[in-house]
Amino acid sequence: MARMHARRKGKASSKRPMITENPDWVPLSATEIEDKIEAFANEGMSPAMIGMVLRDQYAVPNVKFATGKTVTEIMAERKASGALPEDLAALMVRAINLNNHVSANPNDVANKRGLTLIEAKIRRLERYYKENGVLPETWKYSLSNAELMLK
């Protein structure tokens, strides 16, 4: 499939091994994994970072196979999830950083366009999350509000 904001095709990415169940060599039980996820979430880690820490430091290759639920589902059950979805927060951080760059370098036209494209992605995600009830209907994106929310 083609990229949305570039005139080129997509790139192939790495694939997970074809396993369908939790390996026998995983040292933690499902409840221990859920407790670790809750502890990491309370420290302020994102779901992607929690998955990487569990994979690299605790030898849990796939949380869903080990527990039957994803990291975000476990965080939602334990009421340890953040106020914003992870992808929306990451895009807002990118927009803030790019806005700082563009304000320091006003002649950088390519990055002005990049900021416009990132903000378009944020608005599309905002619409999606409002339709699915993740964000309240009164939530509105703006750079000033994003800086206040994420700092």
Rank of each mutant, 00 (worst) to 15 (best):
E131V: 05
E147S: 14
E119V: 09
Y141W: 12
S103W: 05
A110W: 02
A76S: 11
E43S: 04
R3H: 13
N99C: 14
T67N: 04
A120Q: 15
S144D: 13
G82M: 07
M52Q: 13
M92A: 09
H5N: 15
K151P: 00
N22M: 09
A80I: 00
Y129M: 01
T72C: 09
G10I: 02
A89V: 05
K36D: 00
S13N: 08
W25T: 10
G10T: 11
S103Q: 12
E38F: 02
G10N: 11
N107A: 09
A89C: 07
R55C: 12
L150T: 07
I74L: 05
H101I: 03
D24I: 06
G82P: 01
I96N: 03
L143N: 07
S103F: 06
L135T: 01
A76K: 15
K121W: 04
A110M: 11
K130S: 04
S46K: 07
M4K: 15
P106M: 09
S14L: 13
M1W: 11
P47Q: 05
V93H: 04
K69E: 11
A66M: 05
T138K: 10
A66C: 13
A2F: 15
L115D: 00
K151T: 10
G114T: 03
G82E: 05
N97T: 12
D87S: 09
M4A: 15
D87C: 04
N100H: 14
T116G: 11
K112V: 00
R3D: 12
S29H: 00
I37Y: 02
Y141E: 06
M75V: 08
N145L: 15
M18F: 10
A41I: 04
S13H: 10
S103H: 11
N107S: 13
K121H: 07
K79I: 01
N132K: 12
E137C: 01
S144K: 12
V134A: 04
A83V: 13
V93I: 12
M18D: 13
P27A: 05
I96K: 02
L84E: 07
K11T: 10
A80G: 04
Y58K: 08
I74A: 00
L148Y: 06
I19F: 01
S46R: 06
P27D: 08
W139K: 05
A66W: 00
R55A: 15
A83C: 07
E34C: 09
L88M: 15
N99D: 15
E77M: 10
R123M: 13
P85W: 03
M4Q: 14
R94I: 10
K130F: 02
K151D: 10
G51W: 01
T116H: 10
A146F: 05
R16T: 09
A90D: 15
R8Y: 10
M49Y: 00
R3W: 14
S142G: 11
L84Y: 07
N99E: 14
S103N: 12
